[in-house]
Design a protein around this nucleic acid. Structure first.
Length: 102
DNA sequence: TTACTGACTCGGA
DNA sequence: ATCCGAGCCAGTA
């Protein structure tokens, strides 16, 4: 991770390292990227992901263990997680159980 | 350059 | 536990 890396590039690298079947929060990604208060910007980066990106963006959720997206994107994210074995209880994921611990 | 936007989070009620 | 207001800051226009 070089000095000239942008926040976005760091976010890409971090998310690419989240294992299948595990999740992390926007805030955690921001912290690992070196800007602990930029959780919102992590969402901003993912919102503008290039079409056909292989980045596992669905493994990023909010601090309550919920999917932050709406509509069709919400359904796609939920399905992607379920297919990796991540279970929901009342619309929430148990971060103690599925949270990514590096 | 300035001005908005918002896949978030924190703290108080 | 839930709700809401305020702050945040990289992108974008």
């Amino acid at each position: 991770m070089s000095e000239t890396d942008t926040f976005r590039q760091r976010v890409y690298q971090i998310i690419a390292a989240i294992p299948s079947g595990q999740v992390t929060t926007y805030g955690n990604v921001a912290q690992l990227a070196g800007s602990p208060r930029a959780a919102r910007q992590v969402g901003g980066v993912l919102r503008k992901l290039p079409e056909g990106s292989s980045l596992p963006w669905h493994r990023v959720i909010n601090r309550h263990g919920e999917i932050s997206q709406q509509g069709e994107d919400f359904k796609r994210q939920r399905q992607a997680l379920l297919s990796e074995g991540v279970m929901f209880e009342n619309g929430r994921i148990d971060l103690e159980k599925y949270g990514w611990k590096w």
